[in-house]
Design a protein around this nucleic acid. Sequence first.
DNA 1: ATGCGGGTTAAACGACCGTTTGAAACAGTC
DNA 2: GACTGTTTCAAACGGTCGTTTAACCCGCAT
Lengths: 238, 238
Amino acid sequence: MSAEATRNAILDEAERLLGEVGYAAMSLRAVTQAAKANLASVNYHFGGKDGLAKAAMLRRIEPVNAERLARLTAIESKRRAPGGAAVREVVEAFVGPVLHLAAESGPMPCAMVGRMLTEEPPFLRAMLTEHFGPVAKRFATALQRAQPGMPIADAWWQLHFVVGAMTHTMLHLDLFLDLADKAVAPASADEITERLAAFCAAGARAHAKHAARMPAIATARTATKRRSTTNAAKPTRR
Amino acid sequence: MSAEATRNAILDEAERLLGEVGYAAMSLRAVTQAAKANLASVNYHFGGKDGLAKAAMLRRIEPVNAERLARLTAIESKRRAPGGAAVREVVEAFVGPVLHLAAESGPMPCAMVGRMLTEEPPFLRAMLTEHFGPVAKRFATALQRAQPGMPIADAWWQLHFVVGAMTHTMLHLDLFLDLADKAVAPASADEITERLAAFCAAGARAHAKHAARMPAIATARTATKRRSTTNAAKPTRR
DNA sequence: ATGCGGGTTAAACGACCGTTTGAAACAGTC
DNA sequence: GACTGTTTCAAACGGTCGTTTAACCCGCAT
């Protein structure tokens, strides 16, 4: 019974330190000392530093992605959306679970995941593509379906910007409160959700309209289309 | 004469490694070896690892911020903007110099600066607030002036989201190209500029309109106002 | 030639890192 | 109470890190 207790204590501290200082700067000695566990126990329970980081990440990533997919299927099944609001709903299904997690478990879990985007160890990158890849693909197609006639590439760009605004909010909101120097009050989770969703949804819609008119993008898009159809013709490119 | 040559070689390598692996994972041995310089020369020329990172950052930050301010004063002085386009212009003045730097000097300088946002050593945070603080304040007020009647806090939120989308693009565009899995073609600098500016400008405008209607934000805003006036009454709070 | 100061170099120092080891403490079972 | 498997513990190992030291090289004014 005590085994799982120490496991969780170690995971909690690892999550905190991963969010605060990142993977490279997190020392197992600091983790185990704060968790009141022995140094060797992290190797015993997780197999090493990599395993610990992976376990700490998975503990948070999986519920968030599950809720994302659940919300997305929910809004897709009700189906009789008045059209224009769908983009906003998709965006909210994507960012909502993250902000919900931040509201109920504190900012550390989100800071950890956001920071791992930036870290270099290759196993972290592999984890992200493995666990976020399918979810991102579902949301990209959902964004495309919500804006008929828009190429899938534009949907990926929208999602990219949404992720950027979201992770930046998770990680660096405090820096901006510093920069603003009392001009911005610390915000509630609801307020952040509202602001982030409003910004991203409108940005995404306008991005699609704008992209259709811009020559630099239009030419790139035809190139993309040609390439993608080429790929469809020849079964596998690489 | 050889002194400045080694200085620059070390700075170039430091910039590359800071952008690739971050501050904590960058070892001076790797820097000096790649720069064909001696290990001790870092301490001789820059006083230590901190000094090296600071010098590498300043070499890129200062021109970018200078060009930002120059573009902003340029569009403010011409003044007879048709109103609606001003937000877009301000956003472009903010993100344009960064994308311009990326286009002419490669992605590493921007990756370095973006990554330093996430790193933990306190001197880096101090540098960012010192050098970006005044610039951010000018752009926040410019955004507010471009949208009359909007509280300054909303302008700060807009700027926050813009920075998020921009830095995420500088750092993690490759990850998204991976996730998209051939559905998105690698983009030119012009295309990225267009997409980013379109997304951010429209997001900012819609954010302002939306924020005015949302109860969660409206209440928070009145609270902000009350707090700020309180602060104005009592000279210094802390 | 001589002295000198800026710049380079190899070697070493102490600190901290992740990991391993082997013994000790503990649980539950016969 | 002895045995077995699991979990904890202190100690040590090899390695890398940032920094320091002291000797050395070289152009240049004296």
